[in-house]
Amino acid sequence: MGTAASLQNAPSREFLEKLFRTAFKIRVFESEGIKLYRQGLIRGYFHPYLGQEGIATGVCAALSEGDYIASTHRGHGHCIAWGADVRKMVAELLQKETGYCRGYGGSMHIADISKGNLGANGIVGAGTPLGVGAALANQVKGSDAVTVTFSTDGASNNGTFLESLNLAAIWNLNYILVVENNQYAVSTRIEESTRDTDLYKRGLAIGVESHQVDGNDPLAVHAVMEQAVATCRAGKGPVLIEAKTYRHMGHHVNDPGKYMPEDELAYYKARDPVDRARNALKEMAGVSDDEIAAIEAEIAAEFADAVEFSKNSPEVTPESFREFAVGY
């Protein structure tokens, strides 16, 4: 598997800490969120990003204010890496008025338009054309903002994948398609849904700069993303990045994932992206275990605060909903 170009300078502590904080925050959000789900506080679909944190973490670290992201049904990690307010995220999962979408959207629809987060999506593959559209809007407006769509191995076999990337290519859009290849679509293995499982080749076929990277390595993801962003800002976009990864559990909270071979799961758990971010911070920046424990405690406290905030938030009422519905 190709890895990203090695970093020119040793990364700073600040940067490494940011990566670790992001990855760990996603880990806490998902594992604690699952507990809330099991307590009956969250209902509906909840697709955990556990095991894939390295991708959102590395990708978003290479983006700037003014850029855009479009996400998937497995979108909590993308929101957090994008800098979302954890309080508003938890409140949305708890269907409260204070949530990102007033409780009208839920896990699969968290969005923050004013900050360039075009939202999670309940339709597999839909983020591709939407993201290309945002990139097109920015080109028309004369902005050099970059738009990233987080996509999936499952979405790569949908027609809009080709249609959208091709449109981005003929128009040289500032667009980066990040394909999170976790090798499963629910229980269907990638080998069953395509003959060539190297998905980055889909981009090469239509003249798009394409890379494959270890999605469980946040530093490698970041490095290849920096290169992709540079390509885009030089007017040579789009770029496709295939990030190989693996889920730490079944497709959603209620899927035991029995079909995932134990040895394969163990292989990827041994290459845990959060551990890698933590080790990088320790080894490359010499941060002590105590300091790391303090960061982890801070993030856990932030989540606990978000849960308290959400529990105490007002319920959505049918009255305000009826007002909202006027003119629909």
Binding site: A126, T128, L130, V132, G133, L136
Partner: peptide
């Protein structure tokens, strides 16, 4: 789809 995304 691209039109919808651009509008958003």
């Amino acid at each position: 789809g691209v039109g919808v995304g651009a509008a958003i």
